[in-house]
Amino acid sequence: MEYILHIVIMLNIYILLVLSANLPVGLANLLSICQAAFYGIGAYFSAYFLLQWNLPFVVVALIVMCLTGLCSLVVSFASVKLKGDYFVLATLAFQMIVFTILYNWTEVTRGPYGISGIPSVKLFGIISLSGIYGYFALTTVLSLIVILLFGNLKKSPFGRVLTAIRSDELTVLSIGRNPARFKNYAFFISAAFSGLAGLLYASYISYIDPTSFTLDESIFILTALFIGGIGNIKGPVFGALVVVVLPEILRFVGLPDAMAANLRQIIYGLILVLLMYFKPQGLMGELKIKN
């Protein structure tokens, strides 16, 4: 039972991550490969606030989301100034710089040793949320809220402008909307919710180290997004489901652990290549990726 609950908790965290990646990548067609950097920034901020301050969950969540959102300004600045491959490279640079800082600034982040003993979050300031059941409830409620929120966001005027930017940025500019501002918002929201995922991860696992927030993790999140499908809500949720549940299914096939990890990656890679040829918008996705 606890095994299944653990999978569901990780699934909920990945739903948050993939949905927030969908906002810039799927809606506005800004291929950013630094989502894991925001996830990591969120996790490290959370570790700091949970260890040093005795704050209720909602407050910690808001602070972490705001701070992570502020870090996204660097990336959104790049998204306004740079186009196409140059933007991808800039997000890559951001990802690598964040990882290097987490890894090497040992006085603050404790580097490769990681931060252990992160306390559980406190709901309403008093009840300390502990145990797997509590986290199951919390992450499920949060991921449902976020699914609803992003569903509405997509239909809102804001979401429509983002979709319009994906189709034609110049037209958006010519009808009096400022694409730069909308990109800023999109990245802020995306980073903030990745940060929330970081908070949930850090307090649930109670130990974080930089290797959870590498470039590979960013690529993994993008893989989940593109397998599931871009642009809508069910695509990312389905993608998160695939990447979290598939390894568990493979576990029962009975392969040795070392082989299973590599085999899983090969399956993802194959799905990705085949999808890009037959259905580039992903299994459940909405629109094709445009150039």
Binding site: N29, L31, V88, I219, L222, T223, F226, Q265, I266, Y268, G269, L270, I271, L272, V273, M276, Y277, P280, I289, K290, N291
Partner: peptide, 13 residues
């Protein structure tokens, strides 16, 4: 962009 994602797939495989 599609080619790039496919390229990520090849790399992983």
């Amino acid at each position: 962009n599609t080619a790039m994602i496919a390229s990520i797939g090849i790399m992983t495989i």
